[in-house]
Design a protein around this nucleic acid. Structure first.
Length: 249
DNA sequence: GCGACAG
DNA sequence: ATCTTGTCGC
């Protein structure tokens, strides 16, 4: 794919350069800086909330990604696993370790983990169609959980799956796998408590951005295996997160 | 004031 | 999240 330039040498057309570069590292939009006070963080969340896109995912889902972060003292490691949605085959795994800059504050998780996640994201060579996060989306005090917040940086539809309750009220879903009930906050449905495995503690699903709650529930159920209550894409990221520490020593 | 509080 | 002993069960 080379063409002769006016200087008589072969150059790569610009459209090819863009293609080649994207294969080397996945880019993202630096929406904002991360050196902020808790008050500034909350202001950013309130501002970003107005940019949430409440529409269904329309594409053919082929590639999904799962994100998880683990800690060892003040060191954190972010892992992103990319999986072929139809076959469930793992296509790629990337990791990024760094000393975390802020403490964990309920409601401000994204500001602690996104810096690491974005560095891992840069290493991807495969572009995910949809990204799952270990945490919430709009199931958050200001509807800006890590899954929703991340979507603005990585420019992808996202879904949040948390293992424990954060906010909102709900009725316990039936014991049968697949049962779910809405989670209400301020008179609005912002998520669902989903029984991913029969008679097992449920998970808390919410949209991150650019998908409907029903799609978030359906995609989550499609990715739930037999080993865990969390979708396989997130479980694999979690497994590799601790595998990272073991291989390090 | 008290309790709750994703990871 | 991580720490952390024993224990119930497939």
């Amino acid at each position: 794919m080379l063409e002769a330039s006016s200087h008589g040498i072969y150059t790569t057309p610009m459209f090819m350069m863009v293609h080649l570069l994207s294969a080397i590292s996945m880019n993202y939009n630096q929406i904002h800086d991360f050196h902020l006070t808790p008050l500034q963080m909350k202001e950013i969340q309130s501002t970003l909330k107005r940019k949430i896109t409440l529409r269904p995912y329309q594409g053919n889902l082929q590639v999904v990604a799962g994100v998880d972060v683990a800690y060892q003292g003040t060191q954190g490691v972010a892992v992103i696993v990319v999986m072929d949605y139809p076959s469930k085959e793992i296509l790629e795994t990337v990791c990024y370790e760094e000393k975390v800059a802020t403490d964990y504050i309920p409601g401000l998780l994204a500001f602690r983990e996104l810096p690491l996640i974005l560095k891992a994201w840069e290493q991807l060579t495969i572009s995910p169609d949809l990204v799952f996060f270990d945490g919430n989306g709009i199931l958050h005090p200001r509807q800006m959980g890590i899954a929703t917040h991340a979507s603005f940086f990585i420019d992808r539809p996202t879904i949040g799956v948390a293992k424990s309750h954060f906010i909102g009220s709900y009725d316990s879903p039936a014991q049968r796998q697949g049962s779910y009930s809405p989670i209400i906050d301020q008179g609005e449905t912002i998520g669902a408590v989903l029984r991913t495995q029969t008679a097992v503690k449920p998970v808390y699903v919410s949209i991150g951005n650019r998908v409907t709650l029903q799609q978030a529930i359906d995609f989550t159920m499609q990715l739930v295996g037999t080993e865990s209550r969390v979708p396989e894409i997130i479980r694999q990221a979690d497994i590799r997160t601790r595998q990272f520490w073991r291989e390090k020593g």
